[in-house]
């Protein structure tokens, strides 16, 4: 037994020695080698300065997409405010919400998918932040309609309690998803089967023929209705599509989102822009 512990001790000691060797190597000789490489590189940069200027102007995927995820910490002394930094953005964001891991729509369409109508796109993206795509883009048949909507956690995808009462409007870590009736059972519209199908399509996309791709896309989007629900379908007092009370909205919040102020503004927008949004190819559509 004593020998066993001695061996364990020796192994740990050996690991520690190797660890120290690695550290000493890194701060000594590796540092010199690194400096040498950096120097060579900077000399090359200086040499090909003009080329570098041209290179920096190129809008590579890496430069625009991957390098744009910069984070900053503001040291205020009494508080550290950490947030994402968006180039040229003046106002502070002040909080983080993780990506929607459940949605199979955002994997292709991104999480700011609305772009067609310039007067509406920001509003629609604002809703897409806490409303699942299917909530507006899936109109169920009468036999499938349940009127049940629930919140799911963006990270885990699990159904969770309503976040509405405990949070500032719209700053939820959850999204709303409708439920449909399948064989008499309540099933979420973003069911595991649909997610698996979409995932498999994404995995095999490169090896599929154009015809196969078209078929797969058709099947993935089969549940999507041609005309989505519109703003006033929910922002109304009479028969809103969403059961606000059931999904956790207080009376004050319901009054607010169905108030004349909001509904009036929606009317102003929809009167001018909404009809053209629903007619693909019209001139306003390309604004």
């Amino acid at each position: 037994m004593k020998q066993f512990f001695f061996k364990i001790y020796m192994i740990a000691f050996m690991a520690l020695t190797v660890f120290f060797i690695a550290i000493i190597w890194k701060v000594t000789f590796a540092h010199i080698i690194e400096e040498h490489h950096e120097r060579t590189e900077s000399q090359e940069i200086a040499k090909y300065k003009e080329e570098q200027v041209e290179k920096s102007k190129k809008t590579t995927f890496e430069k625009i997409i991957l390098e744009s995820d910069e984070r900053v910490k503001h040291y205020l002394g009494y508080r550290i405010l950490e947030e994402a930094r968006i180039e040229g953005h003046f106002h502070h964001i002040g909080f983080d919400i993780g990506p929607d891991n459940r949605s199979y729509c955002v994997k292709c369409h991104g999480d700011m998918p609305h772009d067609a109508v310039k007067e509406l796109r920001a509003f629609l993206n604002m809703h897409a932040f806490f409303v699942g795509c299917q909530t507006c883009h899936v109109k169920l048949e009468k036999t499938e309609t349940t009127g049940v909507y629930k919140w799911y956690d963006r990270k885990t995808g699990d159904i969770v309690e309503s976040p509405v009462k405990d949070n500032t409007p719209g700053t939820y870590n959850s999204k709303l998803i409708p439920f449909e009736k399948v064989d008499g059972k309540l099933v979420r519209v973003d069911s595991d089967e649909r997610i698996e199908f979409a995932e498999e399509y994404r995995a095999h996309e490169k090896s599929l023929t154009e015809a196969q791709k078209s078929r797969a896309k058709k099947l993935i989007h089969k549940v999507v209705s041609k005309k989505p629900y519109l703003c006033e379908d929910c922002h109304q007092k009479e028969k809103p599509i969403l059961p606000f009370e059931a999904i956790g909205y207080s009376k004050e919040r319901i009054d607010s989102i169905t108030s004349t102020e909001v509904v009036g503004m929606i009317k102003n927008y929809t009167q001018f822009y909404m009809p053209s949004m629903l007619q693909p190819g019209s001139s306003n559509d390309k604004k």
């Binding site: 040229g88 964001i93 993206n125």
Partner: peptide, 19 residues
């Protein structure tokens, strides 16, 4: 609302949220 945003014509994220 934090989600009030869009991607502009140059591919840059435009966020219109005010905390």
């Amino acid at each position: 609302y934090p989600g009030i945003s869009r991607v502009d014509e140059e591919g840059k994220l435009r966020l219109f949220y005010v905390n």
